[in-house]
Structure formats: C-alpha cells, structure tokens
Design a protein around this nucleic acid. Sequence first.
DNA 1: GGCGAATCTTGTCACTGACAAGTTTCGTTG
DNA 2: CAACGAAACTTGTCAGTGACAAGATTCGCC
Lengths: 186, 186
Amino acid sequence: MTDSRSYHHGDLRRALLAAALEAIEEVGPVALSLRDLARRAGVSHAAPAHHFGDKAGLLTALATQGFDLLTQTLTEADGDLLEAGVAYVDFAVTRRAYFEVMFRPELHRSDDAELIAAQGRAGAALRAGVATLPTGDAPADPGRDALAAWSIAHGFATLWLAGALPDRVGDNPREAARTVLRRLTT
Amino acid sequence: MTDSRSYHHGDLRRALLAAALEAIEEVGPVALSLRDLARRAGVSHAAPAHHFGDKAGLLTALATQGFDLLTQTLTEADGDLLEAGVAYVDFAVTRRAYFEVMFRPELHRSDDAELIAAQGRAGAALRAGVATLPTGDAPADPGRDALAAWSIAHGFATLWLAGALPDRVGDNPREAARTVLRRLTT
DNA sequence: GGCGAATCTTGTCACTGACAAGTTTCGTTG
DNA sequence: CAACGAAACTTGTCAGTGACAAGATTCGCC
C-alpha cells in the first residue's frame, strides 16, 4: 500500500484517518497516539501534525466524516422512524470508532466549520425521520417527540457500547434495539 | 486544610478523590493528571499510586462512589418513574464528573469487586423504579420497559452533557427532561 | 520501647504531544 | 525546460505524564 520508497506518502491524510479508525477500535480515542499512527503509516512522528495540526484536529476530521456517514445511514431508512432508530444503534455498534469520537466535544475543535456543517446535516436527517411519527391520541409535539426518539436511540447505543446492559439483552444490537424502540413508536 | 508540616497527609485518599472531582469538572477525565492531583493535595507525584495503584484505580474508586450516589438518588424518588428519570438526568448534570467516569469502562478496572457490586445496586434501584410503570393497554414487558426508560434518560443526559441538543431545549435540564420523559410514561 | 507495616518521597525511564528548523518533492509559471 | 515558491515530510528537542523502584518517615500494636 505505502510505497515507502518515496519521500512523499501520496495519500497520508487518508492513511492516517484509516489508521486512526483501527487504533480507536483497539484502544479507544483516549489512548490514541499520533506517533503510533505515524508508525502505522510508515512516516515520521511529526508528519501527522502537518495534515491535522494536532490530535484534536485529527479527531475533528474523523467526527466530521462520522456525522456524514450517519446522515447517509439515516437517510437510507427514510420514512420509517423505527428503522431509522435501529440504523442509529447499528451505526454506533458497527462503526464504533466514529461514534465514540462524534459525541465527545472535548476531543474536537468545536468551532470547526466543516464539523458544524456535518452536525447540522445529521440533525436535519434525524428530524426528517421523526416527522413520520404517528401522532396517536395525544397532542403531537414534534420537537418533544424528536428529542425522545433521539434520546432513546442514543441512550441504548451508548449503554450497549459501555457494556452496561444486562446479559439477557442478547448479542444482536439490531434486534434488541428494535424491541426497545417499539416502546416509543407504537 | 492540609497541615503541610506532617510527613503523613492523614486523609490523602479522600483528598485525592475530591481533587479528582474538581479536576474532572475542569478538564474531563481524559486530561486528568495524577501528578496534578498530587500537587493540589500538596504531596509528591508518586503518592497517589500508593492509594490507587494507577489512574484506572483512582477512576474505579470514583465510579464506585458515583454508582452509590446514583443509587441513593434513585431510591429517594421511589415509586415515581418519571421523577426517577428526572433525578437520573439531574444527577448526570449536577454531578457530571461522577457520571462521566461511571459509563466509560475503558477508564476502570472492570473486574473490581466493589465497582461491580455498586453497579449491581444501581441496577436494582433502576429496575425498582420501572416496576411502577403503568401497563396501559399494551401487554407489559417489564424488561423491555426498563430498558426503554433507562435508555431515554441516559440518552437525554448524555446528549445534554455533550452539548448536542438544540438551543431551544433551554437551560433547565430537569424541566427539559421531564417534558421528554413524559413521552414514555403517559 | 521497639518493630513491622503503612504512608509518603526522591529518582528515573519510556512515551507522548507540540513545536522549530531543515530537507525533499510537487506544481506551476515564465 | 528551468526555476521558484509552496506543500509534504524529516530530524531534533522540550516539557509533561504514568509507572516503577528504592529509600525515608511515621503509625499502631505487641
């Protein structure tokens, strides 16, 4: 993959982001080391700084990518709130590295324009999914319902990732999420 | 507070935990430095290791305390699921340092016996609160309902702490949580 | 009074993020 | 095609950190 003969890597930025995803899966975003990423990519320890400035810059880029991937995932389940919720949980579990970075502002440059834009797109996709919620008998409050739906999906995903859920929930996050989320959508 | 004349601190373990709470409020559990805690307590840089072994040991002790405080909080709202949920969110916001450590297993020694016991007590308190949920017309599934309630409270709290919620939610976490949680309890 | 154990200190090491300054390559312009 | 400025990357360095080892001081109990 890396030529290793040339002075210029050629695609270092992408390689570092890919290595970061791997490393985060292994040791979490906290223990992520820029120097380790540099070693994985076969470059010197200071090379990452040129592309991302510092560690927060790299994680900001990763979070931005993550929000766009989440937007895509949510959009694909359009119209069906339950499926959007399941997709949200599935995203968190299968693309854990992204998810773990996305909702930790202390790891980002929160003022990054691209990050804010990506967050906005994901928020719009979320709200679009909730618009289809059946109102039932109670007076519908779209804002309230959107928050409730987001909260339950996000909470379930977070607890799953933290390993905090009891064993009897099983090992299939999609199925378990569907069961729990149905509590809200019916 | 510290005598600074005596070789022995006298209550270093407690002082370190208190300093850790302060430091985590300021910089988060990730950037927490044992050496900084030692400075705050007026002891040498290696003193903390004697009481907690390493950083994970200190955070494990903090998480254990946190789960017991949460248990106490939940128990005080006994019988009322909605109030228990509000109390859960309020705990997360007002005792942020505890909450941020409690649900990050990568920061703990997950095999710590006291931690596991405290987690068990908190889980029992959670389930006790859910038992009072009105069954309504649908066939009640206590396990499912408990997960749903926990997820929505945990998710709302987490999103609030992450600063991910839109501005229009306001700045009163108890009130906002009550509104959202009512979506589940009525 | 004395002795073992608990508590705390000093010293050290490898690792990390950040920065500075130098080297190589790329791309574009004349 | 030459050359020149910018981009990409390297080497070198510094302070801060967690962890460990070994020694000093104090406590508590027999």
